[in-house]
């Protein structure tokens, strides 16, 4: 990204009044090193990165920090509430994030228990309400449930982010019909968040009409994360173009591409 403002007619998307070119948001977790994190994120072309909020290590206060490798001046930090299983923990975490980073665009996730870490929608709705009241702009991780998604949108969430499959599972889009339904009824951006395993999954999410894709493990746990980051960048762009181009109809019989006239006899 060269940091220049997007021009009119360029295919961009907007969340909470901020405009972005890249439709890929990447996580910064699970990499082997901070160097690898920085390199993979660069290759992904992402402009927004998710980050977690955790206690500092008091015994090693000079340990290198994420900010030293992934600059918040260059990338929009999207603090998350990973690991929060109650609304109050999520709200506390994001208040700390706002103080640490000075901005109010956040990713809310209130999770149910392992092994699925499926979104806890009761907790999510409760936390979203409190955060919006407190001035946050909430991008919300949620179940692939059009009714809950609509409630979150009506409440004032700035982006709806249903899961493709459980976090870190790499299972892809397990319910594409629901993702499409959520997108069709929404007036705010819809992102597939969680479950993406490989490039074709990201392309598929974009082909369904999603505004962007959020992923982490698919890159970080690939054998070659930097190459997979590049693949994801291409996949999101390809999927977006395919969506805008409009795919051909499904036919259940053959329809030859070559003319049937002028054949030799």
């Amino acid at each position: 990204m060269d940091g220049t403002p997007a021009t009119t007619g360029e295919d961009t998307w907007e969340v909470a009044g901020r405009r972005f070119r890249s439709r890929l948001i990447v996580g910064t977790g699970r990499y082997k090193s901070l160097e690898e994190t920085a390199e993979a994120i660069e290759a992904s072309g992402a402009e927004i990165v998710t980050v977690a909020v955790r206690r500092v290590n008091l015994s090693d206060p000079n340990a290198p920090m994420l900010q030293d490798f992934v600059s918040p001046k260059r990338y929009t930090y999207l603090p998350n509430t990973a690991g929060c299983h109650t609304a109050s923990d999520a709200v506390r975490t994001l208040r700390l994030a706002r103080e640490a980073g000075g901005w109010n665009l956040v990713k809310l996730e209130v999770l149910g228990p392992p092994p699925y870490l499926y979104p806890d929608m009761a907790g999510t709705l409760e936390a979203a309400e409190a955060l919006i009241k407190d001035g946050f702009e909430v991008m919300v991780y949620c179940a692939d449930d059009p009714v809950a998604a609509k409630k979150l949108e009506d409440m004032g969430c700035v982006a709806i982010m249903p899961l493709g499959a459980p976090i870190g599972s790499g299972l892809g889009l397990t319910n594409p019909f629901m993702i499409r339904s959520i997108k069709q009824q929404a007036k705010v951006p819809v992102l597939v968040d969680a479950g993406i395993g490989t490039a074709s999954d990201a392309a598929k999410a974009m082909e369904l009409g999603c505004d962007a894709v959020l992923l982490n493990s698919a890159i970080a746990h690939a054998k070659d994360p930097v190459r997979m980051a590049r693949a994801m960048k291409s996949a999101v762009e390809a999927g977006r173009d395919a969506f805008l181009a409009g795919r051909m109809p499904w036919n259940y019989s053959a329809d030859a591409s070559s003319p049937m006239t002028g054949l030799i006899r």
């Binding site: 910064t28 977790g29 977690a52 206690r55 500092v56 008091l58 920090m65 994420l66 700390l96 980073g101």
Partner: peptide
């Protein structure tokens, strides 16, 4: 708030959390 760190005196029994950003998804 960061702006008042120098004014907030600690009291016995205070519970503090000091956090920063780390990698996450």
């Amino acid at each position: 708030p960061r702006s008042i760190y120098a004014e907030v005196a600690l009291a016995a029994g205070d519970r503090l959390e000091i956090v920063h950003f780390i990698g996450g998804g």
